[in-house]
Design a binder for these strands. Structure first.
Lengths: 143, 143
DNA sequence: TTAAGTGCAAAATCTTTGCAAATGT
DNA sequence: ACATTTGCAAAGATTTTGCACTTAA
């Protein structure tokens, strides 16, 4: 069940979730990568160990608890990545930029890029900003 | 078939597409609104007149020709809106900001808001930027 | 022990594909 | 007339739901 150095038991405990092997596997996969992981990727890697339906439910639970956040890429596919520590059950703060590679389709979290404020037209009240830059990533540009 | 003042026949002609009633209906609906129209909305309004499969194909064709562009909203649902005149069959230039209302779920094109440039990490080559601001829109804030 | 979590089957959607019939030019 | 476009049926994919079984606490 646990394969990386990190232990996620206390993370689950903090959110009053039971520490099942399936949940630990999902956390293991999501926290071990630099980039966000697509739902299809999660399915193909964890498919042997976790039922597809269970995976849906785990991802939904984690998102509601503020453990991970969902980013829809330019194809409409769901991708998941760990939340910053500022996220709570009630509000997500993931206002960083994402980079979606048009070649390999990977979705990176660019935590260092700052999103500027925008002046909205009268009557529009902004809550959050979602910014995805498409292009070719470091790995693909080397090929 | 044609219900608004505008006639889209020459638009279709320009792109070497046949002027069918179904296509004119879709153009009619997309060009008559300030905001982008979701695929479900298109289906429910045009469902009597246009087969669901045909709608998929029309939207795909229009997008490929650079007549409309697709915006995936925060739920992963496809929305469509007319392209700016700068769009061609080969390249889309729709780098404006979209506003997705969390109450009514409408997706507005905010053509006046400028997207700034971003400094990318080494190795990442950006092609396009997709920026969606979520919040409550003018209409919903009045309620 | 028992509430929470999982797996399976099946339903409900969503999207694509193949082909025959209809339509625009 | 003929290539394009549409509609239907059906396949494929994705997501949700109900319920019985299992497991963590």
């Amino acid at each position: 069940m646990k394969t990386t150095g990190r232990d996620f038991r206390e993370l689950l405990e903090k959110h009053h979730l039971k520490k099942t092997d399936q949940r630990l596997d999902v956390l293991d996969m999501l926290f071990s990568k630099e980039e966000a992981v697509s739902q299809p990727a999660l399915e193909s890697v964890l498919g042997e160990q976790i039922n597809r339906v269970t995976l849906y439910r785990i991802l939904k639970t984690f998102e509601e608890k503020g453990i991970i956040h969902r980013i829809i890429d330019r194809n409409g596919t769901a991708n998941y990545a760990p939340c910053s520590s500022a996220c709570t059950e009630h509000e997500h703060h993931d206002e960083h930029v994402h980079f979606n590679c048009t070649a390999c389709n990977k979705l990176y979290c660019l935590n260092d890029i700052h999103i500027p404020g925008f002046t909205m037209p009268a009557g529009f009240k902004p809550d959050s900003v979602n910014l995805i830059i498409s292009g070719t990533c470091r790995a693909c540009n080397k090929k």
